[in-house]
Write a protein that binds this DNA or RNA. Structure first.
Lengths: 113, 113
DNA sequence: TAGTTAAATAACCACTTAGTTTTATACACG
DNA sequence: CGTGTATAAAACTAAGTGGTTATTTAACTA
């Protein structure tokens, strides 16, 4: 994956308001005002957050009269997860206290990822 | 997980230099100068990046005479992955074009996570 | 046409970030 | 002791972020 895209994705996730917006979008499309409602924050602030999420590829938007419904776009989330997956075996091994076996396991290529 | 901790973790990951440092640390401990070597950047800049990674709980540091060896601390990476895992089933379903089944699957709680 | 609603844009502010250079600290070695 | 080495800290700068209020655009409604 393009490093700039990962930058944008992780940066977008590094904000609790934006993570809450994504969580909300898991249960379906929502308009900007619907998304803004739970927050003690102005509408333009939410629009800015949405622009960040859109630029990161995490949401996309449609058109319904005046409304611009947002929906979750999970591909970028998958890309971030894929990046993190490269570390998964590391911490799993480490949690078993088997650091010394890490390289053996890696060279065998024997996990299910 | 504490939201501030997730903030710090994702923010730390949103920088290619820091991700490269983490990748380097996968193959074992390294000193600040060793970590700085591949980058066209001053030593204090790397020290700052390491402080960000340390504050995010992604690395910890020891002491060996003048050296402050850094090692990967995978717990924070695991926490970030766990957060993203809540979205995994969503995109997996979506990729199969089975959006309409998402809520059924969720309410059954029937995946292996 | 005028009024209302939904959202974006503009202009601004305080704070943070990522880098710099310079200086200081801590330790090892002769 | 003084010198080199490894790292951190200080002070600064340019650019980015996250919020505000006020304004504008676009579309529906009466």
């Amino acid at each position: 994956m393009n490093p700039d895209a990962l930058d944008a994705t992780f940066a977008a996730l590094a904000d609790p308001t934006r993570r809450a917006i994504l969580a909300r979008l898991r249960s379906g499309e929502a308009t900007v005002t619907e998304l803004a409602a739970p927050f003690a924050m102005s509408q333009p602030a939410i629009s800015k957050h949405l622009k960040v999420l859109e630029r990161a590829g995490l949401v996309s938007r449609g058109r319904d009269a005046q409304r611009r419904p947002c929906r979750l776009e999970p591909a970028a989330l998958k890309a971030a997860t894929d990046w993190l997956a490269d570390y998964r075996e590391f911490w799993e091994v480490r949690y078993q206290g088997l650091d010394s076996l890490l390289h053996d396991i890696q060279s065998l290529g024997g996990d299910e990822r």
